[in-house]
Write a protein that binds this DNA or RNA. Structure first.
Lengths: 89, 89
DNA sequence: CCATCATTTAGATAGTTGTCTAAATGATGT
DNA sequence: ACATCATTTAGACAACTATCTAAATGATGG
């Protein structure tokens, strides 16, 4: 849960996730949407990957990133349980 | 949304929120549950307050903190909308 | 193989944040 | 008023993080 929170706490990473909602994208395509270097994008993608929020798969020269919506859904559910009496997730 | 994420990204602050689920608590009671100084607790409470996640009310010498569940619920709902097609919150 | 393209890794730097100690503020009861 | 209790504020410091540039890795096509 901590990794997920840390990953989602950054606005750039949330934008990346938003972009990936539409379709899978390679690192370059993602980078093209932001005015930061590819290296920085790579860093963000790594954080998202470690949190399990995205999946990476190599396709030739490119690496294609996709959402792992399962992890996201689980996260939201845990969060929902937060305010229920006796809930102790 | 950004303030909420930042606020929730810290484990100590999430523990504070958990404690406040049970009952309202003053700053001292909250501090007693952690092994950090009162000053640090005060800092965390301030972050939570700025995010709108807790409310503070003075009662004599004490300041009583309580959850603002409305803000939390809104946050979770926004988050839920994140993966819905066309949703653009 | 080699030049090139796509991405990551390494190392540096500036800004942010969690923590501390010490001092200030606010409220109370005598 | 004053001593005391509860909390916050100020200032400092270490750890972390987002970003950069430069170099390294991995894959492709000729």
């Amino acid at each position: 849960m901590d990794a997920t929170f840390r990953a989602l706490a950054d606005p750039t990473r949330r934008e990346i996730l938003k972009a990936l909602r539409e379709r899978d994208l390679n690192a370059g395509d993602i980078g093209a949407r932001f005015s930061i270097t590819g290296a920085s994008i790579s860093h963000h993608l790594n954080v998202l990957k470690e949190a399990g929020l995205v999946l990476a798969e190599r396709d030739g020269r490119n690496i294609i990133y996709s959402l792992n919506s399962t992890v996201f859904q689980q996260f939201v559910e845990e969060l929902l349980g937060f305010f229920e009496v006796g809930g102790d997730k």
